[in-house]
Design a protein around this nucleic acid. Structure first.
Lengths: 222, 222
DNA sequence: CGGGATTTTGATTCCAATCAAGTCCGGTGG
DNA sequence: CCACCGGACTTGATTGGAATCAAAATCCCG
């Protein structure tokens, strides 16, 4: 078992991932390729970096992964959050155009490109299409929309905890949410607080959100 | 030959497409499916609307197409501009999640879904991957970036006129560019004017742009 | 408990949106 | 050929919403 390293998170939005730190585990019950080791990554580990050779694409088994782009000035744009079943790291060219990092401790399988060709598997093709649809929705979300609209849409798109419907456990920080929505962490916080004051959501803790009035959220999302 | 109808373009960003108005032409030299009629659309015609059954996906032969989303309040987000060779209208579900319209007079081929399955054609799969890459880049562009950065990136991504390198003929209006970049038409105009004042581009006319200092643009794009 | 990271909240600033005139340009008709 | 018309574009003045700067509160983990 590997230990979570302390992270020197001083500046805003700067790269703060610990270096790769994963444990390969052979599994029997994996549906994909004949030989797909499951890897475990600790929270905030980098799975791959922008510019790395894209020999594999990946599928999340458990936990959450973020794919993102870093700019020279330290700003970061998160492309997406990926949970169990999601594909990520699919590339046209031979190198990754984004970085991928573990939001929480997580397990993923790597699938060698060409080995199991996407076109060979209807399952993978469907995954690819889903990725495309999400990317397009994300672009629409980032365009001319206000902070409330963005946050409302984000909350509505979030997967609810199994069983307890309308209860959301956030795995990511306000900074992560901001970098995904194109807002600052302060604006995200303020907006969420306002939603609570308006009795639209409940905040037992910062990372626990209960949707009290889904209709109102849908209204705000526009 | 069909006539271009007068358009009542009064409000900003409101739907202003003329109703479908296309001419099917049978062609022999089409590589795709065995039976792919080429259709012609006049400028500003709707090719399909959000919610329409997605029986086909499409490929641009000539001219330019925009795919976009309309909001209840009249705002519009343009998802992308598509030129010769580009695929558009690929959907996961059974209906279109965006609308498609002709930016200029254009010719496109429709490819029936399932008939020529994407997975059956490496060519189509590559097209799909390219679409995905573009959608991701677009999302990154719309996130936390300033007006100048957006416009610079837009100009650099534009296809230059054949032969005369660095000469761009804009097919779209300032409003179109704004709805693509998540800016108002005024901000787009101001930014372009500023670039001219800074001697980075030249504007013989509003729709003709000559890039004088590509390095500077790249610098601004970040 | 203690300490650091995360989150909330407040005050102020700034960039882009909005509101409001003009100007330019391509097309049309006299 | 020129005057005129309408849409597209430019430019100016002002406003507004989110960013930034700053500090306090809270949570989580050892």
């Amino acid at each position: 078992m590997t230990l979570q390293l302390a992270i020197s998170a001083s500046q805003r939005s700067t790269r703060q991932t610990v270096t790769a730190n994963w444990t390969p585990i052979r599994t029997e019950n994996e549906v994909e390729a004949s030989f797909a080791p499951v890897m475990h990554f600790d929270q905030d580990c980098e799975i791959y970096g922008e510019g790395d050779a894209a020999e594999y694409y990946y599928k999340v088994v458990s936990g959450m992964v973020r794919t993102c782009k870093f700019f020279a000035d330290g700003r970061r744009q998160i492309d997406g959050f990926h949970v169990a079943g999601d594909l990520f790291g699919i590339e046209t060219g031979c190198e990754h155009s984004l970085s991928a990092e573990a939001v929480s401790d997580c397990s993923i399988v790597a699938i060698r490109r060409g080995n199991a060709d996407i076109s060979a598997s209807a399952h993978l093709l469907a995954g690819l299409m889903r990725v495309l649809g999400r990317a397009q929705e994300h672009a629409v979300l980032l365009g001319r929309r206000s902070a409330v609209e963005k946050v409302a849409a984000f909350l509505l798109a979030l997967p609810c905890g199994a069983g307890a419907k309308d209860k959301i456990a956030l795995a990511m920080t306000r900074q992560d949410i901001g970098d995904y929505l194109g807002l600052t962490l302060e604006t995200v916080s303020r907006t969420i607080s306002q939603l609570e004051r308006d009795d639209i959501i409940d905040l037992p803790s910062a990372r626990q959100i209960k949707i009290k009035d889904r209709e109102a959220l849908i209204e705000l999302r526009g």
